[in-house]
Design a protein around this nucleic acid. Structure first.
Lengths: 245, 245
DNA sequence: CGGTTCGTTGATTCGTGTCAAAAACCGTGG
DNA sequence: CCACGGTTTTTGACACGAATCAACGAACCG
């Protein structure tokens, strides 16, 4: 357990105010739904914070005191069984909203995978904003509908795809996420461990490692950078992901 | 392929208007969010329809022309892979909303498991209602958040639970659903086939059959009625579902 | 440079899938 | 009421994909 508070204080001598106007990730997030004058109200409610890799952002079942908008780094959300089995429900990146699922308590736990930057908003303040700005509520509903569709896609993966199809789907999904963030879809970054990928895909880390090795051997992917992969045959990977024989 | 139109015409000589005021399932659905005077606007947009078992209500990826509120019977929503593998994402009953996930097109297909009664609303009419009644939009957001939490719970099941835990979770979930509808939680009805249960739990129908047989042999459940089960040791079943060793 | 975490690969096991057949169930019509 | 064909369910034998167990190498970090 590190002591990130020190580092955090070094970066933010006093809790700095958000500058939503010049935020690079605004266009990627629910904040994009707000008009310039409404943005002021959001700024007043937002506290920018950072967390280092491995830190817990919220625990499953705890009262939902805050919601977050990711502005940098990667966060994983997950559920646990009593004996430690873990299911990761999503990897969140810039623009993603944390704290949408469920009512008064967090439906999933969240942990920083890398160092992350977050916009923290108290849940009650968020509710007040939703009441004041119908546009925001509408945006959140749209977001929730899309997340629900994504969750159903993941159910298909977890319930019916084999290991190879799961890994291919994961890589294609990462590429799409990268594209959304304005990066090239050709190469994807894998900041998480093999174990995390496994817990996301309902596999073991050994199986993930084996499948990635096989995909490399067959020329579908190639190493890129320290923790990245180049998707050499993107269309073929999509085919595998879709379960085409 | 049956010809239910005939039957439907017999029941409804002309498309009858909805009577939301006296609707028994109103309190279970999003309609509960509306004030008495707002209910009129809803009634004007709603067409009550029935569909017989096996009929498709909407196809995956098709334009979202209508949304539905179930008022009787059971509906399954599912996704398909190219080679026919199926993942059922949910079983819908009275009060449940169909057509929430995704944007302009259906994220999942839906099929009647039994004969069903539905309140059909054109998607554009629904959008208009959402714009007019913030209460309704709020209710739909709450619903979407809850559905999302349920989807994440199902991901945990599909990714990390074994066959026994999956079946136990399913039965406990059915009991909760029954309770919500005002029925006793002791006995659950299983209108769907073993194959449907399997496609919901990411198993094969043989495995589902075997596990149910085992649970009967061990006294956790007992046959009840034609297609029902009595959950004799509910707490123990909950323990199995939660993965306690 | 030593300790720790992470990733890869191999040998083996095990849970669930697959294939097959019989039994139970169901609506229908004689 | 019972005979009938089709569907669903159950049960068994066997196969296979992914999990488990284990060892080793690579990367990282103080």
């Amino acid at each position: 357990m590190a002591v990130p508070t020190l580092k955090l204080c070094a970066l933010h001598p006093a809790p700095r105010l958000a500058d939503c106007r010049h935020c690079a990730t605004r266009s990627l997030s629910v904040c994009a739904a707000l008009e310039p004058d409404e943005l002021h109200a959001l700024e007043a409610a937002v506290t920018p914070v950072t967390r280092s890799a491995g830190q817990l952002l919220c625990g499953q079942g705890e009262p939902k005191t805050h919601v977050f908008i990711i502005t940098g780094g990667t966060v994983k959300t997950f559920k646990l069984l009593a004996d430690g089995r873990q299911q990761i429900t999503g990897f969140l990146q810039s623009g993603d909203f944390l704290g949408l699922a469920g009512g008064g308590s967090y439906a999933v736990a969240a942990e920083a995978v890398t160092q992350v930057r977050l916009c923290q908003v108290r849940a009650r303040d968020m509710d007040a904003l939703l009441g004041r700005f119908p546009r925001l509520e509408q945006a959140l509903l749209t977001l929730a509908r899309d997340e629900l569709a994504a969750a159903q896609e993941q159910m298909l993966l977890l319930g019916r795809k084999n290991a190879r199809e799961r890994v291919a789907s994961f890589l294609v999904g990462l590429a799409r996420q990268a594209q959304r963030l304005g990066r090239p879809a050709e190469t994807v970054d894998l900041p998480m461990t093999r174990g995390d990928v496994a817990d996301y895909l309902g596999l073991t880390l050994e199986t993930v490692s084996r499948v990635v090795s096989a995909l490399k051997r067959e020329g579908y992917v190639a190493p890129a950078g320290v923790k990245g992969l180049r998707l050499a045959k993107f269309d073929a990977l999509q085919g595998i992901a879709a379960g085409e024989e």
